[in-house]
């Protein structure tokens, strides 16, 4: 926020690009839907309108970002981002294949590396506690149909 960013390297430009990308993907898919007319709107009518508006807004933002100076984008911290996202993916992959307990332990193990402040002994205790508590609350009390162990 303090120093103005260079042209083309600011939040306006990149959010514009993001919107254009989303709108393009949507438009490619909407091509397969019947659009219809105002009187008989097909399933594609409203999404088409929205995607077009999004496309125009994205282009405006991108052009504005190229021409004028804007606020710089925040810095990305890849370590927490990747570790947390991976930990969720691991949970998703393991929960049906290896059971809830292993999925939770794996998630905690990966999420442990998201922060530099974690201590492995504490994380281990938390992981075991969470696995035990989830087994009791979710599987025995709330009866979620999921296996505890492989």
């Amino acid at each position: 926020m303090t120093s103005p960013a260079r042209r083309g390297n600011n939040t306006d430009f990149y959010s514009g690009l993001l919107l254009v990308a989303v709108a393009t993907v949507a438009l490619l898919y909407i091509r397969t839907l019947s659009v219809g007319t105002v009187l008989e709107m097909g399933p594609g009518y409203f999404p088409l309108g929205l995607a077009l508006v999004l496309m125009v807004m994205g282009l405006c933002l991108a052009v504005k970002g190229l021409l004028a100076e804007g606020s710089p984008i925040g810095s990305f911290h890849l370590r927490p981002l990747i570790c947390i996202l991976l930990s969720f993916t691991a949970f998703g992959v393991l929960v049906e294949r290896a059971g809830l307990i292993i999925a939770i332990l794996a998630q905690v193990a990966i999420a442990h590396f998201a922060s530099v402040e974690t201590r492995w002994r504490q994380s281990l205790v938390i992981g075991v506690l969470l696995a035990a508590a989830s087994a009791v609350i979710f599987v025995w009390l709330l009866k979620i149909p999921v296996d505890l162990l492989p």
Partner: peptide, 23 residues
Amino acid sequence: YRLLYLAIVVICAIGVYSVNNSS
């Protein structure tokens, strides 16, 4: 927070999964 966030992510994952039991 180093203890809190571990609990938060696990509860999040179980919560999302349990809605439709879908990975």
